[in-house]
Design a protein around this nucleic acid. Structure first.
Length: 274
DNA sequence: AATATCTTCAACCGCCAGGCA
DNA sequence: GTGCCTGGCGGTTGAAGATAT
């Protein structure tokens, strides 16, 4: 039996310890982890107890390999959120942040590395194309643009060699309402409309917000009509790929929290208005 | 069969943010 | 404003099992 310098047990949990922890949570509920060692009679630190409960003992935890759909989700969420395992795990019922992290580190890391190598090899043979991606930046909560939550995020595929155009985000009171309608087809400017098809192929409804009709996924597409009515249309190209729906429309607390702290580069909007 | 190497994943550790006195 | 405490998170470790030699 391993022991720390303060006499607390470390290492693998025994069945008796699991039982004591279960009994504690049944009696007192989750939380108050600092009280557990005393109340439950466990010679473990609070963090160890919390970790054991959340990652192993909690009911409804799904064990075993990840389904193809889950893997798909993880890849897309990781693309959007990075290593924010707890946020990713909340989108996967029964999976814990630790599970997702382990899965990524053991399976996806290798695939990603080989994919990068493959891509680099292919890149030698093809003409370079500018791919415009959102560029998240972390801002303080007092940042003026965060007085309202972000409205929309999109990735533009520019015509010809128009480069350095970044996707944009804007508060809805900016007077630039056409942008809203372009993406969510709601009230306001009606010059352009955006329709998405193929959503029924996504088992998780919320997932429609992360549509990406780039390579490898042909399930859903987004087409925009009416672009010819915009003065700067020549700069955009004819295709807009919907990368994320309106943040405010998320019922989901996790992603709306994300909107509180993530903002996307504004230069595209500045560029259009120049 | 024995040993070495690789893979998996439970568990630990350090850091950070928020709440409170 | 400061310090303390707690919960929560992501990075990392290492034991155990699987696979290769």
């Amino acid at each position: 039996m391993e022991r720390s310098t303060f006499g607390l047990r470390k290492g693998a949990w025994t069945e008796e310890e699991d039982l004591l922890l279960r009994q504690y949570v049944e009696k007192y509920g989750e939380g108050k982890w600092y009280q557990i060692p005393l109340r439950a009679g466990l010679n473990r630190c609070r963090k160890s107890c919390r970790m054991r409960w959340l990652n192993y003992l909690k009911p409804n935890i799904k064990r075993g390999g990840f389904a193809a759909d889950e893997v798909d989700l993880i890849i897309r969420l990781h693309k959007l959120l990075g290593n924010r395992w707890s946020l990713i795990a909340r989108r996967l019922p029964g999976r814990t942040a630790n599970d997702v992290k382990n899965f990524w580190n053991t399976h996806m890391c290798k695939k990603e590395i080989s994919h990068i190598k493959e891509t680099k090899e292919k890149a030698k043979d093809i003409v370079k194309v500018n791919v415009i991606k959102p560029r998240p930046q972390t801002c303080s909560k007092n940042f003026i643009w965060l007085n309202e939550k972000p409205t929309a995020i999109a990735r533009f595929e520019p015509k010809d060699n128009v480069s350095n155009i970044s996707p944009t985000l804007m508060p809805s009171n900016s007077g630039s309402e056409w942008w809203k309608s372009l993406l969510d087809d709601k009230e306001g400017d009606e010059r352009a409309t955006c329709t998405v098809s193929g959503l029924d192929k996504y088992p998780n409804k919320w997932w429609k917000s992360l549509l990406d009709d780039k390579e490898g996924d042909e399930r859903a597409t987004c087409t925009v009509s009416g672009l010819d009515k915009y003065p700067n249309k020549d700069l955009w190209g004819e295709k807009i790929v919907l990368e994320a729906e309106v943040w405010n429309n998320f019922d989901d607390e996790d992603l709306s929290c994300l909107a509180d702290q993530t903002v996307f580069d504004m230069s595209f909007w500045d560029f259009l208005n120049a």
